[in-house]
Every structure is written in C-alpha cells, then in structure tokens.
C-alpha cells in the first residue's frame, strides 16, 4: 500500500537552479536543448512513479490477475495445472461448507461493525477534551491495535479458557453462570468478534478524533446561542460533519471484517465444528492445507466481488450527501 500513497508525491516542481543551467546552453543549440528539456520533463514523472509502479504490479496487480487465472484451473502445485473452465465456481455453489462460511462471515461482520463503530465514536467524543493526561488515554486505547494479532490471540485464548480463564473467574465471582467461550459453537464467534472489536476500536477512534477536531468551533457556539442542547448538537452538527470519516471507517473496517483470519487461525482453527469457519480461513484451508489452489483462487475471486459490491453499496448510501469541505 505504501506504493499507492507515494503517488501523491509525484507532483514535484522543478527548481530555478535547473532552469538557469538550461538557459545558458540554450544560447548554443536552442532547438535541440529545448527538445531535450521537454523530453526530460515529460520523462521525469514516469521515472519517479516507476519504483512504486513496479511495487504495485509485482505485489498487487499481477498476483490478483494470477488468482483470477488460477481460478479456472485445478492445481495442487505439484503437478501441472489442469484447465477446468468454470468447474471450481460450480463446485463452490454445491459446497455446503463454503456456503456456511459465507453466512458465518456475514454474521461476524454484523457482530463487529455496529458495536465497534459506535464505541469508537463514543470514545472519540470522550477523548476530544483538553484535560491533563489526555494523551496517555488516547495512546492506551490505540495500544491494542499496535500489538501483534497472533500474540493477542494467544493471550485471549487464556482469558477465555473455560476452566481456568480470567473471564470465568470474574463471572463466577459475581454469581453469574460460567460461559464456554471459544469451546462453544454458539459463543465462539462472538468471542472472536469481541477480541477484534477490542483490537480495532481504538484505531478507528483515532479517525473520529481527527474528524471531530476538524469541525469548526463556531458551529457549536452559534447553535448554543440558538439554544440547542448537547444531544441536538451531536445529531445536527457532529454526526453530519463526521460523515466523511464515518464513510472511510465503515468501508475499511467492513473490508477488514470480511477478511478476518489471524484471530480465527490462532484461537479456534475454524471450530468448534464449523462455527468460526469464516470465509478467509476456508480459503486458507483449501489452498494451503488441502492444496486445492484453483478452488481457493475461485473462492477468493468470489470474496473480491462480494466486497466490491458491499463497498459500492456503502459509497452509495453512506457517501450520499457527504460534505468533505468544511472551510
């Protein structure tokens, strides 16, 4: 992704120093040097883009195209690939585990996104004050996002342990019934979602915090003069003006939720049964445990299409009437 963002720096300006040297040569062969300078000028941007272009090609576009091509083959990586046309896609339609994993993933996204987004906005409101030590709080909430997902998952696995875990000790100490957490087919997915919410809320909060600080103070002052309370201010000023942030956070976090993998891989391996067998984990299993590369590629293409549709939908409905310029 670093490659993409560096496009922004391509728009460089040429300094006067370079000009003055060309002027001095122009007196001798004015036409030729003018041509050369034009050439250099038009070539320079391409040269500057080239490294990131190579990066994007090698790490994103070519692999993505390769996945589409591979999805029409049967390939175990050990023998030459076999062209099978749309066979893999037809198989997916008849694969109960694949269909179930789509439902599981959708459920996971629903568990994650609303809660995570609402909590992130609330945290941002709380932390958007000038109080001593606020910086420490802000840092604390972002900390989970900085930790390695695998390490986090291992620790949470201990927290969730049904016989010696921290959560159960807490629950039983206040007289509540014990839960099975990761060991229960109904509780495992919410438990995984909980870990992800814990990990990502602080990070999303940062965007909302930035969004809040971009809202001009005079709007609140004016509304106060008009006699509106805090609640009215939130719904009439804060939320509408946070819309661009909200759109960004929703799009990226929905994509991330659809592609959840590492926490599932470490904590449940898709189990118990198929209760946490999310789509991305199933792709991994088909590809790197059963070595059905063509099938895994076809599954990935379908995921790509689903995410594309969901994102377009979000742009349509959340993105509508969004103001980006608060000047």
């Amino acid at each position: 992704m670093g490659g993409v963002s560096s496009h922004a720096h391509v728009d460089l300006k040429y300094g006067d120093g370079g000009m003055s040297t060309t002027i001095s040569t122009r007196t001798v062969h004015s036409d030729k040097s003018l041509m050369r300078e034009k050439m250099a000028r038009s070539l320079a941007p391409y040269l500057l883009v080239f490294p990131s272009f190579v990066g994007v090609m090698a790490f994103m576009l070519i692999p993505a195209l390769a996945v589409i091509v591979i999805s029409f083959f049967k390939w175990n990586m050990l023998s030459p690939p076999n062209y099978v046309g749309l066979h893999n896609y037809v198989d997916i339609l008849h694969d109960p585990i694949a269909l179930h994993s789509i439902v599981t993933t959708a459920y996971y996204v629903l568990l994650n996104i609303p809660l995570q987004t609402v909590v992130a906005i609330m945290l941002a409101l709380l932390l958007n004050r000038r109080l001593p030590g606020m910086g420490i709080f802000r840092a604390l909430f972002v900390l989970p996002w900085l930790a390695a997902p695998v390490a986090i998952s291992v620790v949470w696995q201990w927290v969730f342990d049904p016989t010696s875990g921290v959560f159960d000790a807490l629950l039983s100490s206040i007289g509540l019934p014990r839960l099975q957490w990761l060991a229960s087919p109904t509780e495992a997915l919410p438990a995984v979602a909980l870990v992800n919410i814990w990990q990502w809320t602080g990070y999303n909060m940062l965007f909302f915090l930035a969004g809040l600080q971009g809202i001009p103070k005079y709007l609140y002052e004016a509304s106060e003069l008009d006699g509106s309370g805090k609640v009215r201010q939130f719904f009439s000023i804060t939320l509408p003006l946070l819309r661009p942030t909200l759109l960004f956070v929703l799009v990226t976090s929905v994509i991330g939720s659809f592609q959840v993998f590492d926490t599932v891989y470490v904590m449940t391996q898709g189990g118990p049964g198929t209760s946490t067998n999310v789509y991305n984990f199933y792709i991994f299993q088909q590809g790197f445990q059963f070595f059905h590369m063509g099938y895994a590629a076809a599954l990935s293409v379908i995921l790509f299409v689903v995410i594309l549709l969901v994102t377009l939908f979000q742009m349509r409905f959340v993105g509508k009437r969004t103001t980006y310029d608060l000047g």
Partner: peptide
C-alpha cells in the same frame, strides 16, 4: 480493521515473491 485488509492482501504476495 483497516490495515488488516492491506496486510492480508500484501503479505502473501510479498512472501510468495520473496
């Protein structure tokens, strides 16, 4: 969630290439 998408899509490609 954000970076996850990027990490997940880039890492396999990077590791394959390396």
């Amino acid at each position: 969630m954000k970076l996850k998408k990027k990490i997940l899509s880039v890492i396999p490609a990077v590791s394959l290439l390396t």
